[in-house]
Write a protein that binds this DNA or RNA. Structure first.
Lengths: 224, 224
DNA sequence: TCAATTTGATAGTATTACTATCTTAAAAAT
DNA sequence: ATTTTTAAGATAGTAATACTATCAAATTGA
């Protein structure tokens, strides 16, 4: 028997559910590849269609536009990460140990431990680092937020916030700290690989240094 | 006698120096207004030209494309902020006091204390929060970095890193911490105003809370 | 097997992101 | 004072982007 993880996505994210058809899955698969290869700015539905071997109009039947598609794959990533977080933290008693595992999860390239056929989680992680914030850094944030498109990200932050409170019930900024951990993990990863003088990791490109930095930063402020 | 601050910009940022002509200054002035109003994605040289009362081709004589223009105004902002930082920190002995002033500078809406005629620094700050990271979150980062387009940001980080080391000469991550302070200040500001559940500041929209959060986070890890 | 649904193929439009050219106006140099 | 340079205005044009619409063929499913 084969168990398959299916992530239920917010229906406002798509016009037609991409998980239900071959073409839909191909759209996700190839859009991840294309965005990773050329960046979101130069990604177009036309190129995507050529890549898949379908037509532009075909893609538009699934997604309203490329921004929605980016939100879709980002939301999918956060949902998947939340699932992995629950698994990794399960049965761990010590909240500090929990938080350490969370930091590792956020700052490490995925090892494809729980993988889903048509998604390449490892390059997806790279996309989230470079393109993830573009989902909300728009004039449409509030509308998109009302449509609950950012719920997976918010849920994840909320879960991490709970663990932070387990570590220190008096800590005043659990939500801000959790969103900051996520953002720093990504920013430092991007800087390490692209603008190394903004970090202390030189050209080592060693993710464990980001983890060490985050642990130092977070635990000193939680242990006080 | 009137003193005027002029910021010398990297020549690779423009085709023709916008500070030297009326039209050039108008391009900067109106692009800041337009990007603030409609966001960078829907900002076009055509709309900008109509706004100024010139033609599209006219804008292209100054800037290669809108991305370069965004880098230009971002770089200008960081240069200007570095100048303000030097002024605000000047003559302060206690490095912790210095760092507090830096945090306040990064997390506060500018009070137009040192202002330059044709730039609206207060709305520029808002643009940097929403659009700033888009300058480097591209496939061209490395090239643009080789052209030293991000030097003002890097210089600022380096200066803040020095202050961090004054606070604690043994601290291992001065550069990562300074880039993280800047990024968190912006992210938390954006979240507070647009996705408040990602912060602990509710709908207060009170910048002093971001400052308190940052101080708590930073000083606990520096004092250890 | 009939009906509904999904895809493919094609066409078309408004806008974007430019490049080119030519003329006029203003500034600088001689 | 008049050339020469430089900047700006006006206009045109092109390839690509971001869509929308329509119709036919193929597939699915009741």
């Amino acid at each position: 028997m084969e168990l398959q993880l299916q992530i239920k996505m917010n229906e406002k994210l798509f016009l037609r559910d991409p998980e239900q058809t071959e073409l839909g899955k191909n759209i996700i698969l190839h859009s991840i590849q294309l965005i990773h290869k050329n960046g979101f700015e130069s990604f177009t539905f036309k190129k995507l269609a050529e890549n898949i071997g379908t037509t532009e109009a075909g893609i538009y039947r699934y997604f309203e536009n490329k921004h929605r598609l980016l939100i879709y794959i980002t939301a999918w990533y956060w949902s998947w990460l939340q699932y992995r977080l629950v698994v990794h933290v399960n049965n761990i008693k010590d909240p500090f140990d929990k938080l350490k595992r969370v930091i590792r999860l956020l700052a490490s390239t995925v090892e494809d431990d729980i993988s889903i056929s048509y998604v390449n989680e490892s390059i997806l992680h790279q996309i989230i680092i470079t393109e993830g914030s573009k989902t909300y850094l728009t004039k449409r944030v509030s509308e998109d937020n009302k449509d609950q498109l950012f719920n997976p990200y918010k849920d994840l932050c909320s879960k991490i916030g709970d663990i932070i409170l387990e570590c220190n019930p008096n800590y005043k900024y659990p939500k801000s700290l959790s969103s900051s951990i996520i953002e720093i993990a990504h920013a430092q990863n991007f800087f390490m690989n692209n603008l190394p003088s903004l970090t202390d990791f030189g050209n080592s490109k060693d993710e464990s240094k980001i983890i060490a930095f985050l642990e130092d930063l977070i635990f000193s402020s939680l242990k006080e």
